[in-house]
Computed example of a mutant assay.
Amino acid sequence: MYITITAQSLSGNFGQSATAFVDYLEKENEGKPMPELEHFFDQHHNEISAEEVIKEIDNNTAKLKKSEPKFYSITLNPSQGELKAIGDSPEALKQYTREAMKAYAKAFNREIDGKPVSINDIKYFAKVERQRTFKGSDKEIQENQPYATKILELKQQVRSIQRGETAGNIKKLQKAIERLEREAPHQLNGKRIVRDMPKPGPQSHIHIIVSRKDASNRYSLSPGSKYKASEVEMNGKTVKRGFDRDAFYRNAEKTFDNLFKYKRNYVESYTARKTFLKDPKLYFSMITKLPTNERAMAFKLLQKTGINTSLLSIPTNKLQLTMKAINTLKRGIGKAIESGSIGI
């Protein structure tokens, strides 16, 4: 499970309203018949309209400055292994979202009316998306790019000849284009993978828009707080503040495992991701020290993302990876983290 939290963008042409973000989340519904539409939902309701989401978020911004985000975007990105475990079920994902948002509420070191923040204090709306497309940062696009560049050059030559600007053999150029299309290393259904092409396999994930203010519109609840847990004097009173992202990520992961009896491998865990980011060498060492069956599964999961695990095929009692090998593995695993492809 790969989870992100992002503040509303207020720079450039982005406005104060949630309209643009909600419109973006509605993109998958374009052209679909009514029975196939994916609706927004919250903790207690289904089939909430985009208009209601915008109204509720925009009207829940009391005393917030123009420079402050009015909402945050949370994405819950299950790996394909996790999606397979739940049969890629939208209803299971909704159930999980509602439980994960309880963990979100508990991560706040705040009190409202003398009680810890609970899910009833959180104003959020979520939506399941079933599809992902290839982006420029994906390995498939980057490794196909030299072919894409050459194909574009050849197509420009063809158009130049067709306009009578230059002389040349169009048939020869078209054959060269066809050859490059076939030789591109990453193909899908017999076609070169390009940007915005839908990714294969289950790709379901959840987008959540959560208000900066609590449901009563009185208190600010910022998951972007730089404090995990602290207290401060305000108007003569001691006030708790802070949000523990680590606790949220760990508990959201545990929630999935407990709900669906999911057997999580080390490389899929939030603990592994933290270790990788802080100490890559320790991360690789931990993998080699896993029990035989778990280590084999870890290698299998990493190999699915295109990572060369032969670099880890060394004695488990003494890790001796060169810096070149470590950096090679870091690049591959870093991309896997960003795409959520192994859920770490």
Rank of each mutant, 00 (worst) to 15 (best):
Thr4Ser: 15
Thr4Phe: 11
Thr6Arg: 15
Ala7Cys: 10
Asn13Ser: 09
Phe14Asn: 15
Ala18Tyr: 00
Ala20His: 08
Glu28His: 14
Asn29Ile: 05
Glu30Pro: 03
Glu30Leu: 12
Pro33Gly: 00
Pro35His: 00
Glu38Val: 08
Phe40Arg: 02
His44Lys: 05
Glu52His: 14
Glu52Leu: 11
Ile54Leu: 06
Ile57Tyr: 01
Lys63Thr: 12
Glu68Trp: 12
Pro69Thr: 10
Phe71Tyr: 15
Leu76Trp: 04
Asn77Pro: 11
Lys84Met: 11
Ile86Met: 07
Gly87Trp: 13
Asp88Ile: 07
Pro90Ile: 07
Leu93Tyr: 15
Leu93Ile: 08
Gln95Met: 10
Gln95Glu: 13
Thr97Asn: 02
Met101Val: 01
Met101Thr: 00
Lys102Gln: 09
Lys102Val: 08
Phe108Asp: 03
Glu111Trp: 11
Asp113Cys: 08
Val117Leu: 12
Ile119Arg: 04
Asp121Cys: 12
Ile122Val: 11
Tyr124His: 04
Glu129Gln: 14
Gln131Thr: 15
Ser137Tyr: 10
Glu143Ala: 06
Glu143Tyr: 07
Pro146Trp: 02
Pro146Gly: 05
Ala148Cys: 07
Ile151Met: 04
Glu153Lys: 14
Lys155Pro: 06
Gln162Glu: 10
Gln174Pro: 02
Lys175Ile: 00
Ala176Trp: 01
Ile177His: 02
Glu178Arg: 04
Arg179Met: 05
Leu180His: 02
Glu183Ser: 03
Glu183Met: 05
Glu183Tyr: 04
Pro185Ile: 03
Gln187Asp: 01
Gln187Met: 10
Gln187Arg: 09
Leu188Lys: 04
Lys191Leu: 00
Ile193Asn: 01
Lys199Phe: 00
Pro200Met: 10
Pro202Gln: 09
His205Leu: 09
His207Ala: 06
Ile208Lys: 01
Ile209His: 00
Asp214Phe: 07
Ala215Cys: 07
Ser220His: 06
Leu221Asn: 01
Gly224Gln: 12
Ser225Ala: 10
Ser225His: 05
Lys226Glu: 08
Tyr227Pro: 01
Tyr227Met: 05
Lys228His: 14
Lys228Tyr: 14
Val232Tyr: 04
Val232Phe: 02
Asn235Tyr: 15
Val239Met: 12
Lys240Ala: 07
Arg245Tyr: 15
Asp246Glu: 15
Ala247Leu: 14
Phe248Gly: 01
Tyr249His: 13
Arg250Thr: 06
Asn251Ile: 04
Glu253Val: 00
Lys254Cys: 04
Thr255Glu: 00
Asn258Val: 06
Phe260Lys: 10
Phe260Asn: 03
Tyr266Val: 04
Tyr266Cys: 03
Glu268Cys: 12
Ser269Ile: 05
Thr271Met: 10
Thr271Glu: 13
Thr271Ile: 12
Ala272Asn: 05
Thr275Lys: 14
Pro280Gly: 13
Tyr283Glu: 06
Met286Gln: 14
Met286Val: 09
Ile287Glu: 02
Lys289Val: 06
Leu290Trp: 14
Thr292Gln: 13
Asn293Pro: 04
Glu294Gly: 01
Ala298Leu: 06
Lys300Gly: 03
Leu301Thr: 03
Leu301Ile: 13
Ile307Gln: 03
Thr309Gln: 11
Pro315Gly: 11
Lys318Gly: 11
Leu319His: 12
Leu319Ala: 13
Leu321Asp: 10
Lys324His: 12
Lys324Thr: 13
Leu329Asp: 08
Lys330Gln: 12
Lys330Gly: 07
Lys330Asp: 14
Ile333Asp: 02
Gly334Phe: 15
Ser339Gly: 06
Ser341Lys: 12
Ser341Ile: 09
